[in-house]
Design a protein around this nucleic acid. Structure first.
Length: 257
DNA sequence: GTTGAGCGTT
């Protein structure tokens, strides 16, 4: 079992966060701990997982106590085959709590004694850059096709995932857009986070399902929805449309919950 | 059981 993350962040006062990408979905922190611990003192290993499924997202964060060890780990473990997959180890750019991170090092307002340690990353920024650049470019091709395979798909997933709880998501906007399977995920997520928020955001007792929807829909389409990517309002048969039954689900569930 | 760009929790 992983004792990491159970107690939260131990100490991010002088730790260096490393981001491990491209790891398998079944790779746990315990599997990465011994691997990274061999190259240095690992303070904490954390693997972000999904809220609903609880499955790994495919990347992990490894915090080292010293940058030199972290740097070595990055150089040694970057591109290493773990669990049959090539992992990518690099310094974290963003902090957990919007902390100030420089080259993977988390600097707080209290930490002002970074003069001596500053030389750790100063000596060889160029050398490592060139060295990594060459190696990075070689295996970059492998990931190139994966990345450039479908930008649209990537953006979609990333958007829906990164946005997390859509704070700017309007009810009308949500209803207008027919997501699909993500709809249930969003609803489930909203409900989870909606502990402090009222479960029902649409306290409209008298809502007409069919007639109201049609009129609103026609109006929207006539307004400016034309520009949107909904060229086919009813191009398929309602009977043979699975999405239609899903569209009707939310309403019932909303009222039920 | 699946997927594959990226940046994190008590």
């Amino acid at each position: 079992m992983s004792h990491f993350g159970k107690s939260g962040p131990p100490d991010i006062r002088d730790t260096y966060s490393l981001l491990v990408l491209n790891i398998t979905f079944r790779t746990s922190a315990d599997d990465l701990f011994p691997l990274f611990d061999k190259y240095g003192k690992v303070v904490d290993v954390f693997i972000p997982r999904d809220r609903r499924t609880g499955d790994s997202r495919g990347f992990a964060f490894v915090r080292y106590k010293y940058a030199e060890e972290a740097q070595k780990a990055v150089d040694r473990l970057d591109g290493r085959i773990v669990d049959g997959r090539e992992i990518m180890v690099q310094f974290a750019k963003y902090g957990p709590n919007a902390e100030k991170i420089q080259k993977g090092r988390i600097v707080e307002s209290s930490s002002k004694t970074t003069s001596r340690r500053s030389r750790s990353r100063s000596p060889r920024p160029r050398h490592r850059d060139e060295y990594r650049d060459r190696d990075y470019r070689r295996r970059s091709r492998s990931r190139s096709r994966s990345r450039g395979r479908n930008d649209r798909s990537r953006g979609r997933e990333r958007d829906h995932r990164r946005r997390s709880v859509s704070r700017s998501a309007s009810p009308d906007y949500r209803k207008d857009r027919k997501k699909g399977r993500y709809d249930e995920e969003r609803r489930s997520r909203s409900r989870s986070y909606g502990s402090a928020s009222p479960p029902r955001r649409s306290p409209n007792p008298s809502r007409s399902p069919s007639p109201r929807r049609t009129s609103q829909r026609a109006e929207s389409a006539d307004k400016g929805n034309n520009n949107e990517r909904s060229p086919a309002p009813k191009s398929v048969s309602p009977r043979a449309q699975p999405a239609d039954s899903r569209s009707l689900s939310p309403r019932r569930s909303d009222a039920d919950e």
